[in-house]
Amino acid sequence: MSFKNKILRALIATVAFATAAATHAAGPELRLDKAPLQFDNASLQHGAKLFINYCLNCHSASYLRYNRLQEIGLSDQQIKDNLLFTADKVGDLMTIGMRPAEAKQWFGAAPPDLTVIARSRASHYGSGADWLYTYLRQFYRDTNRPTGWNNVVFESVGMPHAMWDLQGEQVAHFVEREDGHGGKAKHLERLEIVKAGKMPKEEYDEAVADLVSFITWMGEPSQHNRKQIGGWVLAVLAVLGVLTYLLKRSIWKDLH
């Protein structure tokens, strides 16, 4: 075997070994549903309404100002009339009255600020939106929990199901399977609605999709703007690339 071949073999072995090491590193499986996000104004406004009614009592969105909602098609007057419950001015930040220290006493942990929650929940299992979309649809009844609620995605969650009146009450059916390491792991088989809510399943899923779309927008309100500007910047740089290349070629032409 030639020397080069030996090196090649060693390299392949190292890479294969490293890949094996990586697969072993995978933690417990987290199954997330793909969030069907919609960034049109109607969806975002519906999401904003749900967010302000259901989330903004315990969670703040303290990096976002109410009048930023102009960007999803609401006028200052509309915001003032319909959405301004806890603030005086339309330019105020979306804070809440509950103090973090009190919240911690009541829930065990202070409910986190939600402004950038979609960005923080991303992982190799899926985007932050996917996590939220799955989480908000997988609350189930669990009498062992102080709130009476548990969640498939976030086990022993401190938060009760805020939108239970819309979704209704679910119970979870789990099966135990071998986890491949000699132990057993709990797998969700299915969720079953035992008490209907105001919305049928499809409607609830759509409502959650709108809510998650709004939370995703809120995580980075400039994201649409960013991509638009980005397109122009790349176009200008591409033209500049061609021009500077031609200039380079003409200047270097006389070198021998």
């Binding site: 960013r226 980005g230 397109g231 790349l234 740089l237 500077t244 290349y245 200039l247 380079k248 200047i251």
Partner: peptide, 20 residues
Amino acid sequence: IKDIFGAVVFLFVFAAVVFF
């Protein structure tokens, strides 16, 4: 001029990350 051309190519990739 060669470095300016290289800088433009780099900035293209850089901007693609920054904006997208």
